[in-house]
Each structure stands twice: as structure tokens, then as C-alpha cells.
Amino acid sequence: PEAADLRALSRHLYEAYLKYFPLTKAKARAILSGKTGDNAPFVIHDMKSLMEGEQFINCKQLPNQEHQPQTSHSGMDAVELRFFQSCQSRSAEAVREVTEFAKSIPGFIDLDLNDQVTLLKYGVIEVLIIMMAPLMNKDGTLISYGQIFMTREFLKSLRKPFCQMMEPKFEFSVKFNVLELDDSDMALFLAVIILSGDRPGLMNVKPIEQLQETVLHSLELQLKLNHPDSLQLFAKLLQKMTDLRQIVTDHVHLIQLLKKTEIDMCLHPLLQEIMKDLY
């Protein structure tokens, strides 16, 4: 394809990204570096601040979500579970956002519907983990649309296995952030991940690979223009996709372990659907 077409594709995906993802990297980095003035995030660093912040999270929940009754889990042990349920609600909403983004990739909705489902099932957790990176630094992560900053130490202090959930994402994110991608680069990279022709059970691989190839060309050109001094950035970025698959596999195993050990835990139906028979 001509360079002009590749640039148009890049602009289109960036616009879709801005439309469907409410917290951009630009905004997240401004919050993390304290450039938002009075709107500094609420910091959760211990159980006391979690309980204070929890009310804040619950107030901001989306209208069509059921509220978890506060009395159903009581005591300190239940704090983790309650927090985990909030994370699930946000993740389900994020899956919806990623689906809308996927549908905006030219040619995606013309693919076989079952293949679209397969691409989302296998791609969405990878996309969500990549999207966490801009929200993170070595000390913690923004949650709740950037209104809260939760410290890494606090997440590590939760009881097992909750304390094991985020640490691999921090390790990945800190390394990923060294690449210094911006939102327009991210949009293309997310599309490349979604259009992976090697997902198990795909019926018609060819058109998916053709779409991915075009987006890959667009990404390569974008990185050359946007990061002229960053050598081998395209290759380095593609290598991240291997690490990502391992993180997702470990994450899914951890959730499956949680399902067995936490009798009070209910997995969100959409997330259950995605994780069932996945790796």
C-alpha cells in the first residue's frame, strides 16, 4: 500500500482509540507526573485508605452495574474480594471498549463472525494488559479512570493469591514504558495484537493475516516517523508480543486458581466466557 494510505489508516485507528478509550496515555502521564494541579488522584496505600477509596470507587460505578452489597463480605479478609469484584466490573467494561475499537479496524467486521469472536477472546486480555502500562510506573498504578493511584507495595501486601496478580504486570509495564510509545503508536499496536492469525480455532486465517500485514506496515512507518532516533523500535515492540502471551497464560491460571479457592468469588459472566477453555 501507498504511504498515504498507511498514514490514513494510522489516523483512523488513532481517532477510534480516542473515541473508545477514556483514559489516554497522555492524560495518565499528566496525572502521574502531577501536572493536573488540583485533580491529584486519591492514593490507596493501606487498608484504611482502601476503605476510604472504596466508597469513592463504588460511587463512580457505572449505572447498569449491580452494586455488591457491602454486607455480603465483611471483615478484613473480604476487602480483597470486594476490590477484586470492582476490578472485574471495570474489566468487563474495558472488554466492551476494546470490542468497539476492534470493530473500527477496517475489514474487521467483514471477517467471519466466529473468527471475530475468536480474535477477541484471545486478544482482549493481551490488549488490556498493554493498556495498563501507560497507567503504571514503578511505584503503582492508576485505577478507576485515573481517579485513584494504588501503590505497588499495597498490592504486594494483599493476601495470597491476590498479591501475585499485579506484580508481573508491573514488571512488564516498567520495561514496556521504556519504549515510550504514544497514544497514536498504541492504537496501531493494539490493532496488530487483535489481528493475530495464529489464534486457536480460527477458520479463515488468510484475510486476518492480510489485514494484520497492512496494519503492521502502517505501524512500521508510524514508528519511523514518530521515533526517528529509536533504533529497532518496531522489532523491539513485536518482541513484546511473546512476553505478553506468557503473562496472559499466567493470569488466566491465577484466575482459575482463585475460582477454586475463593468460594465467595463470582466471576463476571463476560470474563468467564473469555477465559473458558482459553489456554
Binding site: R96, E100, K103, L113, N114, Q116, V117, K121, I274
Partner: peptide, 20 residues
């Protein structure tokens, strides 16, 4: 198809919010 009911819905219902 039943196994991925919500994903199918998300893909087919344009932008109308599916009951998550």
C-alpha cells in the same frame, strides 16, 4: 455460539450498551 453469547452480542449490537 452459545459459549460466547455476550461476545457475539457485543460484536453485533452496534454501540448500544449490552447489559454487562
Amino acid at each position: 455460539k452459545e459459549k460466547h453469547k455476550i461476545l457475539h452480542q457485543l460484536l453485533q449490537n452496534s454501540t448500544s450498551p449490552v447489559d454487562l
